[in-house]
Computed example of a mutant assay.
Amino acid sequence: MDWLQVVVLALLQGLTEFLPVSSSAHLILVPALTGWPDQGLAFDVALHFGSLFAVLLYFRRDLIGMTASWGRSVATRQLDDNARLAWGVIFATIPVGLAGLAFKDQIELYLRSPFYLAMGLVFFGLLLGWADWRHRGDRSESQMTWKDVLIIGCAQALALIPGTSRAGITITAALFLGLNREAASRFSFLLSIPVILLACLLKTKDLIEEQVPVDWFAMGLGVLVSAVSAFLCIHYFLVFIKRIGMQPFVIYRILLGIALLAVFY
């Protein structure tokens, strides 16, 4: 890959991993429009590590507090807000892990097409718009119940469907449950940590088994650009979400779905 392809794909990964717009749709559309060759498994791993580093860095203080409280809760069985949030992230990750093990191959085989990507973008985009417009409330993430955690976790499993967007579906579910925009987004970002980590480990395993040659310059540049763009994305999304709401992302998803259909059909 040349440097332009590395930078563009890393920017896309960093931005779309945390915005409710579907990273898979972008990563299939851009190569089709540019004629670029497939970036390969090693580069995918690098981009995911960049995104993971960004979210860990941004939420480092929260994660330190959550980890300490979680450890105390294991020893004392007493839950404060941080411990409850840490357990919430763990429990909400279980459904997507089970669904991935059970259905990943079938989804890759039958649903990984531009048509289903476009349908997912439009349908789940409209669902996000409806949740933001009619159902959002004023609860924070510390006010979630275990039922809320379970519902958001099950919703996250739907992100295996192409075009859904992991961030988009978890924010949608949280808004339907009455969380405010900031709380829905923050919990979605925290939920991304174990999911991205698991994806990195699985892809690294595949990479080792395939013994793929590595372009270390592309890998290093990809990690850097993905990490910086993801960090800035998280920061500005949380800063401006009160002002902009979710509707601009709904409109963007619909336009992106139309663009996919126009390019491939």
Rank of each mutant, 00 (worst) to 15 (best):
R136G: 12
D2W: 06
F176N: 02
T76C: 08
D215S: 15
G40W: 07
E141Q: 14
L198T: 03
L117R: 05
W216R: 13
D215G: 10
G153R: 08
L27R: 04
D215F: 13
G168E: 03
L179M: 13
M1L: 13
M1G: 12
V30N: 09
E17K: 07
L12M: 10
S185K: 04
R243C: 00
Q156C: 03
I107H: 09
A10K: 10
G153M: 06
P213A: 14
Q13G: 07
V250C: 14
L256C: 01
I234C: 13
F189K: 13
R139I: 00
R166I: 02
H135V: 02
S192I: 04
A75E: 07
L117S: 02
A259I: 00
V250N: 12
I161F: 14
I196D: 05
Q143S: 08
A167H: 04
D44G: 08
G257K: 03
I161R: 00
G245I: 05
Q156L: 05
G71T: 09
L256N: 03
L47Y: 04
D80P: 06
A92P: 01
L101P: 11
L111A: 15
F18V: 00
L101Q: 07
E209R: 13
R136H: 11
L63Y: 07
S140C: 03
C233Y: 01
I107M: 13
W146M: 14
R77W: 12
A92C: 01
S22Y: 07
V214K: 14
M66A: 13
F249D: 08
S226C: 11
P213K: 12
L191H: 09
H26Y: 09
G163Q: 01
D132A: 09
M246L: 15
Q13I: 00
Q106Y: 15
V149D: 11
S188I: 01
V89Q: 06
L207W: 06
V96T: 14
L4R: 11
A83K: 10
Y110S: 10
L232T: 01
P114H: 04
L221C: 13
E210G: 10
V223R: 08
G168C: 04
A32Q: 08
A218R: 14
G153Q: 06
I208H: 11
L126Y: 09
A184C: 02
S24H: 11
F59D: 04
F43M: 11
D38W: 02
R243I: 03
V212G: 07
R136D: 03
D105Q: 15
